[in-house]
């Protein structure tokens, strides 16, 4: 009789297989083929793509660069997002207006915003350099020097995704119980002490969740790089996703790009699992 329950599970399982497992299994199969512009189809070449990948310095450099970019931008987003959330958590004038305003960047299309930012950073025609000139900082080679281009990508990412952090952390702050804050006040704790001893620890779980979600998203960084710098100058802003895009879509090395994608998936899964464990240990006191 209880076997009938499997029949009811079947539609859901079929959908799961169709939209998650099949593409993944197909990608695994493709990664063992030499499918490219001149060898279409699923032949079998064993682990050749993976051996080639191992020696592909540009791929590993892109992965290292991505790690720096991801950790750097997410930390900045967390810090700024937390600060903004704290700002509008309490009663301030025009609180509702600011809450909506802070969300605007997140609601814009990444590609379109990257185009806008590219125009802003444009060293001849963009508005940023004249402003910097006017205030005495001087024009900067935003997109033509490696360090500046890297910073430009980070600025756009932080600008676009800080609101996401803000949203999650504000929701967390609004859900905190009032009693610990009352107790802290009775004990004479000032704002900094209250933040360090009450607010921040109680926000541990939601902070870990927000950071992990953003790390996962940021590790797929592609549109901003594509539009803003095309991975340049040189390869200084080339991320893993952009490199896989070049190999897969531009060079049409379907088999090789599948192996790059799967390796990337494994590396990121392992890395993010380790980061999640470390963050939980550091930031969440009640781990039951």
């Amino acid at each position: 009789m209880y076997r009938q329950k499997y029949i009811f599970l079947l539609p859901g399982l079929l959908v799961l297989v169709a939209i998650i497992l099949f593409p993944l299994l197909f990608t695994i199969r493709v990664s063992f083929s030499s499918w490219d512009v001149y060898n279409p189809g699923l032949n079998w070449i064993g682990g050749e793509n993976y051996a080639r990948l191992w020696e592909d310095a540009r791929y590993w450099e892109a992965l290292t660069r991505l790690s720096v970019l991801t950790v750097g931008t997410v930390l900045l987003q967390y810090t700024l997002g937390f600060a903004l959330a704290l700002l509008v958590w309490r009663d301030i004038a025009a609180r509702r207006f600011f809450r909506v305003l802070f969300l605007v960047p997140m609601m814009t299309t990444p590609v379109v915003m990257s185009v806008i930012w590219r125009t802003i950073f444009h060293e001849s025609l963009g508005p940023l350099n004249p402003i910097l000139d006017a205030i005495g900082i001087g024009a900067q080679p935003w997109l033509s020097q490696a360090g500046h281009a890297f910073a430009a990508v980070m600025i756009v990412e932080v600008w676009q995704w800080t609101p996401f952090m803000f949203l999650l952390l504000l929701a967390g702050l609004l859900s905190l119980p009032n009693e610990p804050f009352l107790a802290a006040r009775i004990d004479g704790a000032g704002p900094i002490r209250t933040f360090l001893s009450v607010t921040f620890p109680m926000m541990g779980a939601i902070s870990v969740g927000a950071i992990l979600i953003r790390l996962i998203e940021a590790s797929k960084l592609m549109e901003t790089v594509y539009v803003l710098t095309s991975g340049g100058p040189g390869t200084s802003t080339e991320t893993t996703s952009y490199y896989i895009y070049i190999r897969g879509m531009r060079d049409f090395q379907i088999g090789y790009s599948a192996s790059l994608s799967l390796t990337y998936l494994i590396v990121m899964s392992v890395a993010l699992t380790l980061i999640a464990k470390a963050l939980i240990r550091l930031m969440v006191k009640d781990r039951t």
Binding site: V37, Y38, R58, G232, P233, G234, D251, F252, Q253
Partner: peptide, 18 residues
């Protein structure tokens, strides 16, 4: 595979430019 050849060439030239 002209895309691959030219992509490789552009990446090399970009390295020299930067």
């Amino acid at each position: 595979g002209v895309g691959e050849f030219m992509s490789s060439l552009a990446a090399g030239v970009a390295r020299a430019q930067s």
